[in-house]
Design a binder for these strands. Structure first.
Lengths: 181, 181
DNA sequence: CTGAAGTTTCAGTCAAGAGTGAAATTTCAG
DNA sequence: CTGAAATTTCACTCTTGACTGAAACTTCAG
């Protein structure tokens, strides 16, 4: 398949961004391609379109499958697996956040919990103890909140985001809400 | 300076996490060290404590300074620069998010804006056009919201996070709020 | 001014991990 | 069953970027 300059630019930029955030460049590019194309593609075609080795595509798709960002589908009269991704950005965002949470945040909380439970912990300076506790608390609060947010439907989330300012007012008592222009 | 096993574990884990999120491992370790120690340290001592080259510390501190995550301070009778970081996790989080936003999100929005403004854009399939537009909109909404949140004081943010569930109710009309247990 | 203390720069080395392609494995039509 | 098509695995190569240490530069006390 031939890419338009626009599609190509999108995919290349996505690859770069992925790389900066710790996602393999090929993985990010493949995902961007599937996202833009919007229909299931066989691995061959992905390899050819992006000019990467067939085996690289295979590994990358495996990773995307494990993140649940792509699904396998089949078409009649074609033995090959085809791969597609959701066209809903919110859906994708949720899956990505959920994945990173499980793979990185939870191990971090485990390490911090371990440290706090260690008999040596009491021998740290009071200031260091305090910081470690606060760090754990912070990560914990943040992820609990993220869980809560991601449980909402996309439309609800959208509303929440778009009313950022009002949330602030709400927290402060909500009664000045009606005074807004 | 000699590290306790606990401090060491914290610093090493922090380094790993940083690496996964696209932050240089040394940079993350140095930051973790300053965070736990809680007082200004000269570059020498950082190098010695973490067993990395003095020059590496110099470069890493430069990066941390550019992110505004560490500050230089001086002490009487010592010509050397000393470096310290905020002990407030929230403060640190804000600085990190702000930094990444400027360095990565804004360029991405620029690329997407460019694409949307390009004369070639109209030649993409309607579905692809739609996806690109939605992607830009999504990133835009999310960062506008993040800006709003980060402008709040830490205590306000804390409250917002801790009442995740109620925010949901608020969005849906807020009237069932009083029915909570 | 001068040299000692402190700091940064930079060319070179090294390690981690991304990407390749041949070989092994799996799947299924006939 | 069998072999052709599809896919995956894996040992290897290559690239990127982290890290080092020597040299250059800056600052300041005396």
């Amino acid at each position: 398949m031939e890419l338009t300059p626009i599609t190509e630019r999108f995919i290349l930029h996505w690859g770069e961004m992925g790389a900066r955030w710790g996602v393999n460049r090929s993985v990010a590019q493949i995902h961007a391609l599937l996202y833009l194309v919007g229909r299931p593609l066989p691995a061959d075609e992905i390899a050819e379109t992006l000019s990467v080795a067939r085996s690289n595509v295979s590994m990358s798709l495996k990773e995307l499958l494990s993140w649940r960002l792509v699904k396998i589908s089949h078409s009649m009269g074609d033995r090959r697996d085809h791969f597609e991704t959701s066209g809903d950005v919110w859906e994708l965002f949720k899956l990505i956040v959920e994945g990173r949470k499980q793979r990185e945040i939870e191990p971090t909380l485990a390490v911090l919990g371990d440290i706090l439970a260690s008999p040596d912990f009491a021998r740290e300076t009071p200031a260091a103890q305090q910081r470690i506790r606060e760090t754990r608390e912070f990560i914990h609060t943040l992820t609990a909140w993220a869980d809560e947010m991601l449980r909402q439907a996309p439309e609800t989330l959208m509303k929440i985001l778009k009313m950022g300012a009002r949330v602030h007012n709400f927290v402060r008592g909500a009664k000045e809400d009606k005074e807004e222009k």
